[in-house]
Write a protein that binds this DNA or RNA. Structure first.
Length: 572
RNA sequence: CGGGGCGUGGCGCAGCUUGGUUAGCGCGUUUGACUGGGGGUCAAAAGGUCGCCGGUUCAAAUCCGGCCGCCCCGACCA
């Protein structure tokens, strides 16, 4: 391919809107262009990369025995009503009507469509297991798109769904997908961390996320510095401290005035005690009941954990009026001592290790000091309720500490169970003629997001450094003087020889001076650069350079191909 | 949706505080010439309803109000 017949609209300066590296460099390099907030076009270069990523994913899916399908973007409302997600899916899907008023949504995910497809044609255990996948655009009305391709309203996703007769079958399908994912990210050269994750609302279990540690990411993960424990912050746990061995001395808490001090920080300052000596009391409405959730003052409550611990389906914070009613005080002064019996008290394990602490007094502008669990109030349930913090002890090994990292979520594997199969009628008959719902798993990879992730992982101040496996072209031939017809001919010859070796080659034959050609080659990030300049014309010497580490060799023309192959060996 | 920032030729910006000629600069683009190893030089040229609507004023890029768009920070997810 010749640059004069291709299209590489690079930008000398990055558009002001781009902040993170991948966004900036993908724009500058002419890979993507914005159409609106969170909506991007892919230029020829960008599409080539996207297709490379797709094909890696496709080949590993196929190798794992999955079959490719293509489901409609347009999903009828009735289908989503059957799964119960028409009204509840978050963020709310894009919804539209045809001219006769039938309602549709633009598929934000395809459990409904795939389950319906399978339900129509699969009836027997003999047809299972079955894993289907597609690589297709998804639409999500994100509250806020951000970071170029990191979070967008329209994106390319690989989504796979497995159907099995039982849990054991699901385990096998899940394993196959899991290992395919490991290979996919190896081939994409993305060193992912596989972390435990929250299963989500639809009765799933056993879920792992494939995360790239990266400051531009939106997630926080915790990993142990000693063992292999790793978890998304949303469900990370830490080893609870030993409960206190001694029993508190007899006595009673003291009421102290704390006018206007309605936050942990304010109380801590006012009483001159550390936030870790306070206990935060948070009132929630859990289904029909009110609960008081207790965490140490310097900790953050994890609502998902609270919901799980309580085994309720609906959980929300109590309103200011409800707080007033239950505690007899304004928000900020609730405490576990003297709450109505109807309010269940659930406390984080850490409270067990505390003594002589401070809580709200359940009256305006006052707190209790010198409070003791067991003596002054009772806890109904002990549970892990708090967000893990950097430096917490590992829940799995004896000595490790948990470390927080920012990360981009690239893939998610997930055992779904039978909920969709049941609601959408994906049933099969077993050997004995009994009808059962299929047991499902689902497996997603953000394809366009992976493209951004690769750039985040592989770039320098000059531009992108594409791994060989996803580069738009693996080799660029820089024809420094396009008017030198002998060199132009040499470029064609070399390109042909390199292509015969299975490499994709772009000849930069634009009528530009050398400067812009070098700059663009670095910016666009071709892994290997072949430079045809004065030395080639006069001495027959060609420079071959590797983008990732600037390794460089000057060789006679007949050794160019072997040198390129040699340098390619150790390219990213 | 809450908070913050921005909106001026394709890109990056200045001008706005203190209203007043023909709205500037760098880059890019076009044409010609030279040049040809890290964004080159010279010459000529094209390209702008200053985001939109309204208001104040003799006069608005500039002041006021509303709206729209884009980016960043928070609640969701691949």
């Amino acid at each position: 391919m010749r640059a004069t017949q291709f299209y590489t609209p690079t930008l000398r300066q990055a558009p002001a809107e781009a902040e993170i590296a991948s966004h900036r460099l993908l724009l500058r390099g002419g890979f993507i262009r914005p159409l609106a907030a969170g909506i991007f076009s892919f230029e020829p270069l960008g599409l080539r990369v996207l297709r490379k990523i797709e094909n890696i994913i496709r080949s590993e899916m196929n190798a794992a025995g999955a079959l490719e399908v293509l489901l409609p973007v347009l999903n009828p409302r009735e289908l989503w009503e059957r799964s119960g997600r028409w009204a509840t899916f978050q963020p709310e899907p894009f919804k539209l009507q045809d001219k006769s008023g039938r309602e549709f949504c633009l598929g934000p995910t395809h459990e409904e469509a795939i389950t319906d497809l399978v339900a129509r044609d699969v009836n027997s255990y003999r047809q299972l297991p079955l894993t289907l996948y597609q690589i297709q655009v998804k639409f999500r009305d994100e509250m806020r798109p951000r970071g170029g391709l990191i979070r967008v309203k329209e994106f390319l996703m690989k989504d796979a769904y497995s159907f099995d007769v039982d849990e054991a079958g699901l385990d096998r399908s899940y394993e196959a997908m899991y290992h395919a994912y490991v290979r996919i990210f190896e081939r994409l050269k993305l060193p992912v961390m596989i972390v435990e994750a929250e299963a989500g609302s639809i009765g799933g279990h056993e879920t792992r996320e494939f995360m790239l540690l990266c400051e531009a990411g939106e997630d926080t993960v915790f990993s142990c510095d000693n063992c292999d424990y790793a978890s998304n912050a949303e469900c990370a746990t830490s080893r609870p401290p030993q409960p206190r061995a001694d029993t508190p001395a007899p006595g009673a808490p003291q009421l102290v005035p704390t006018p206007g001090a309605a936050t942990i920080e304010a109380v801590s300052q006012f009483l001159n005690v550390a936030p870790s000596q306070l206990v935060k009391t948070l009132l929630y409405k859990a289904d029909a009941q009110f609960v008081a959730a207790l965490v140490r003052g310097d900790r953050e409550l994890n609502e998902t954990k609270l919901q799980r611990a309580l085994r309720v389906s609906e959980l929300r914070m109590a309103t200011a009026e409800e707080v007033q009613q239950l505690s007899g005080a304004a928000v900020g002064f609730a405490g576990p001592v003297g709450l109505p019996d109807s309010v269940k008290v659930i406390a984080d394990h850490e409270i067990h290790a505390m003594g002589d602490f401070v809580v709200g007094a359940n009256q305006d502008d006052a707190h209790l000091v010198g409070v003791e669990v067991g003596r002054d109030f009772q806890v109904d349930t002990w549970a892990d309720l708090r967000m893990v913090a950097d430096g917490d002890p590992c829940p799995r090994c004896a000595t490790g500490r948990l470390r927080a990292h920012r990360a981009i979520e690239l893939g998610h594997v997930f055992k779904l169970g039978t909920s969709y199969a049941q609601s959408l009628g994906a049933l099969y008959l077993d050997e004995d003629g009994n009808r059962h719902p299929m047991v499902m798993g689902c497996y997603g990879i953000g394809v366009s997001r992976c493209m951004a992730a690769v750039v985040e992982q592989y770039h320098d101040e000059n531009g992108i450094i594409w791994p060989m496996s996803v580069a738009p072209f693996q080799v660029v031939i820089l024809l420094l003087d396009p008017n030198d017809s002998a060199l132009a001919e040499l470029a064609d010859t070399l390109a042909g020889q390199l292509q015969a070796q299975g490499l994709e080659v772009l000849i930069d034959d634009r009528d530009e001076r050398p400067g812009p050609k070098f700059k663009d080659a670095d910016l666009i990030g071709y892994p290997l650069h072949v430079v045809l300049g004065k030395k080639a014309a006069t001495e027959g010497l060609v420079e071959v350079r590797r983008r990732c580490d600037a390794a460089e060799k000057v060789v006679p023309t007949d050794q160019v191909v072997s040198t390129v192959l040699e340098l390619a060996e150790d390219a990213v």
